[in-house]
Amino acid sequence: MKILVCIKQVLESGTDIKIDESGKWVHYSDSSRFEINPYDNYAIEEAILIKEKFEDAHIDVITVGPDRTADVLRRALGMGADEAIHIIDKTDGYRPPAVTASWISAYAKDKKYDLILTGIMSEDEMNAQTGPMIAQIMDLPCATATIRQNISEDKKSITIEREIEGGERDQFDITLPCVLTIQTGINSPRYPALSKVLRAKKKTFDIIQSETLDMPVHTPKLNDIILPIKEAQGLFIEGNIENKADQLLKILASRSLL
């Protein structure tokens, strides 16, 4: 059982997002802090749970990005992944999901993975495209928003539940290999273990320079990024905290809501 987990580094959640001078990307400074895309933790954890069930399972983690993104690979190894692949892309700006998907597919195509996992989307760009695109390029079946999985004893197929509108679930039997994008809540991601983190520090990654990989023909172009125009029509209650509480109660009473 060979598993590939695709992960991404994003700005730490809660970061005050600023636009850089070019107006084309988010401003990163020396003090910017990055973390693993929180959604990807669920994909890594699910791979580890599979490994705990099938002892012969082997987990590779892969990321695309500049040098600093190696941190998320180390973190995944600290959680329990076996090997890491880093596709180094020196351009530190917008990279369309079609590019990421095509590069990961180029790496994975002859590696005979039984299962390729991604998070449901990335917290920064929120495209939710990389997983389904990898499946399409590699001609593999794909389930998005997977909320439960169970691999058959003979390891030839997998039963999954995918979440649809209203939290309902559709169940599918899929012949392996396949691609799954993992929904949050499927598990409780563990924290990296110190012993594994120390071992990960010494580990060498499989490094691929993105220049050696082909670009897809068509990708969307980023014109610029902007702060959303605030159209808030609502009433902002001002004053000290007690005063705000009084005003809120008055509003509720005047609308007969209390």
């Binding site: 917290e123 929120m126 068509h218 969307p220 990024i225 902007i226 702060l227 959303p228």
Partner: peptide, 28 residues
């Protein structure tokens, strides 16, 4: 529309940033 080309808006970072995208393909 901006200077003859179409800009498509979509949110990033949980709605704290908006990206203005262009399409450079025969089909989108």
């Amino acid at each position: 529309e901006k200077e003859g080309s179409l800009l498509f808006l979509r949110s990033m970072y949980g709605g704290k940033i908006q990206a203005r995208m262009e399409i450079d393909a025969p089909l989108a």
